[in-house]
């Protein structure tokens, strides 16, 4: 196999990039999927992602254990999610506006406490390669996989199964489709949504840990630049199905990798255009899925975002 052909290099870089870049998308999208299934929208996951990234990096730096950092990121994320979940149950409080506020608040906190961690380097998450058997150096580097990606895939499958087959899954779906029905069944709608938003925040925080502890693998203020937001949009595209969320995340990861991949073979023309590509793709995907009949069929009935 000739590793010199630019086409192969670009393709490998895109595949490798998709595997690397997609993980945060996947976690945020799964978190948002859970929240939206319960009938509420959390637009603040961008802030959760950034705060998660900062906490993971700081804890990993101080404790020397990156996995402790991942846990800390999850806890920080669930704290933000819990605030969102609690506040939204109050009458007259708009969940979309609160999402924007939490996004600004989370980002602000992360930048505030993160200033001290821009310089030092924290221990990163270990990775292993799916391409080791080929003996080809390039394939090996391209197919570096982080355990968190696998965790994400497992969560996606588990969530999909739980929605379909467990009592808890049914309760979450029912709350999302019709709050009166849930109340009639004796389910506390506020509690279900609070827990779903908190758990969703946990997942988004873990996605942030991936950003700072694996790829790109350092903490700075431009780390996320809208990935959390794109992941929220992606849930609509994935029609509230965890498995489709995972695939959509891979697609988005691949788009995000086009720019750096082309740059690696010396095509720097339009680098900034390719930087914009994921945002443009998200917008196109939103336009396409907003009017689709299938999306309209699968949308949780209580959701304010599609009205």
């Amino acid at each position: 196999m000739s590793g010199d052909s630019p086409f192969i290099i670009v393709l490998l870089a895109i595949v490798g990039g998709a595997l690397r870049v997609s993980t945060p998308f996947m976690f945020v999208a799964l978190g948002e999927c859970l929240t939206e299934k319960s009938g509420r929208v959390n637009l603040g996951l961008e802030g959760t992602l950034v705060l998660g990234a900062m906490c993971a990096y700081a804890i990993s730096f101080h404790s020397g254990s990156p996995w402790l950092g991942v846990l800390a990121a999850g806890c920080a994320g669930s704290l933000l999610g819990a605030i969102h979940g609690y506040v939204c149950k109050l009458p007259r409080v708009n969940d979309i506006a609160i999402g924007i506020a939490m996004m600004l608040f989370g980002t602000g906190l992360a930048f505030f406490f993160g200033k001290a961690y821009i310089q030092p380097s924290a221990p990163r998450l270990e990775s292993f390669s799916l391409g080791a058997w080929t003996g080809n150096q390039q394939i090996e580097t391209a197919l570096q996989i982080n355990p968190l990606l696998l965790v994400g895939v497992v969560v996606a499958i588990a969530m999909s199964w739980a929605f379909a087959n467990t009592k808890w899954g049914l309760i979450v779906r029912m709350t999302g489709d019709s709050a009166p029905a849930a109340r009639a069944m004796g389910v506390s709608v506020d509690m279900v949504r609070f827990l779903s938003t908190t758990a969703g925040g946990f997942l988004a925080g873990v996605g942030g840990a991936f950003l700072s502890l694996f790829y790109p693998g350092s903490w700075n203020q431009g780390l996320s630049s809208g990935q959390g937001l794109m992941a929220v949009a992606l849930v609509i595209f994935a029609r509230w199905d965890p498995i489709r969320c995972a695939f959509a995340a891979l697609l988005f990861g691949a788009t995000g990798a086009i720019g750096p991949a082309l740059q690696s073979v010396g095509i720097t023309q339009g680098y900034y255009f390719f930087n914009a590509a994921p945002y443009i793709l998200t917008l196109l995907v939103m336009i396409a899925s907003a009017g689709s009949k299938q999306a309209a069929r699968n949308v949780p009935g209580e959701l304010s975002i599609t009205k």
Binding site: L43, I96, I100, L229, M286, A290, G291, I305
Partner: peptide, 8 residues
């Protein structure tokens, strides 16, 4: 198209 204006 009914695209959510906050996200877009």
């Amino acid at each position: 198209r009914g695209v959510n204006e906050t996200i877009s």
